[in-house]
């Protein structure tokens, strides 16, 4: 069974209780934020801050619209971080769809940061390893819902079976359309095979307004590196090893006494 998290951004009141719950459950050190002229707690995600409620301001119909979004790992079906990771066992796709970082196996190369189309993983300057939302895999493994879901006071956040949540999200966007938001819809980008974090957006045709990429996918260079480049390298290395070995077997070493050329023997030998 694939599990998922549904974020109905239209119900978010920006209370940030989910941020606190995340920090508490995952035992994260609190870092003093910076004031950027908004109600956001932090300007960005951090290695010890995995869940940020973004207060996106959007100019629309002569007024300002506040678009809340929950910036966190999307737990993609086809995860760019996992595709880019060179360390076996450092990034794991769990059977329930969770993309989990196993810091014991992480080598700290940061390739996942580059591979992620949502710019989520963060390198810790102290441990030199990478961290992000684990979908509270230590809670879901024993049948509990993630900490952020547990604490959300408005039911903006729902956790459950993915197929069921997709149905709920579709129904909710239909409701929103009827309520005067014709652009309402579900954010479940197919470029990464769908995500296990789903959004209901009032302005679904403009996910960028929420800080979400319009068409995320695994980067081409990562696919090249993990695909054709492996074949090219294997061919070149083994081809050269085999080629030079066979050359030796067929022709042997260069030998001045055998491969010399009489017509150039005009050079006097020194010993003579």
């Amino acid at each position: 069974m694939t599990v998922a998290k549904l974020i109905d951004t239209t119900l978010c009141i920006g209370c940030k209780a989910c941020e606190v719950a995340c920090q508490e459950w995952n035992d994260q050190e609190y870092t003093l934020g910076t004031f950027g002229g908004t109600y956001q707690t932090m300007p960005d995600l951090a290695h010890n801050f995995w869940n940020l409620i973004k207060f996106n301001e959007m100019e629309r119909d002569g007024g300002t619209s506040w678009l809340m979004s929950k910036y966190q790992c999307m737990h993609c079906a086809e995860a760019g971080c996992l595709a880019a990771c060179p360390a076996p066992g450092a990034i794991v796709a769990r059977p329930n769809g969770t993309i989990d970082f196993v810091q014991d196996n992480c080598i700290g190369c940061g390739y996942c940061i580059t591979g992620c189309p949502f710019d989520v993983p963060r390198l810790s300057p102290t441990t030199k390893k990478v961290y992000k939302c684990s979908l509270c895999s230590d809670r879901t493994a024993v049948g509990l819902e993630p900490a952020c879901i547990k604490t959300c006071p408005t039911n903006c956040l729902t956790f459950g079976e993915r197929d069921e949540l997709v149905r709920i999200a579709e129904a909710r966007s239909t409701e929103l359309k009827a309520d005067g938001f014709p652009d309402a819809g579900v954010y479940n980008p197919q470029g990464v095979g769908g995500t296990n974090v789903l959004y209901v957006l009032k302005h679904a045709s403009e996910p960028e307004q929420y800080g979400l990429p319009k068409d995320p996918h695994i980067p081409l260079s990562v696919s090249l590196w993990k695909g054709p480049m492996k074949w090219l390298g294997t061919l070149m290395f083994w081809g050269t090893i085999l080629g030079t070995f066979l050359h030796f077997v067929i022709y042997g070493p260069q030998d001045p006494s055998k491969h010399g050329h009489p017509e150039k023997e005009d050079e006097p030998r020194d010993r003579a």
């Binding site: 880019a84 390739y111 980067p219 260079s221 990562v222 590196w225 480049m229 390298g233």
Partner: peptide, 12 residues
């Protein structure tokens, strides 16, 4: 992104 592909290519 460019380096992830070009570094191993140059190495090959």
């Amino acid at each position: 992104l460019a380096s992830i592909a070009l570094h191993p290519l140059a190495a090959i």
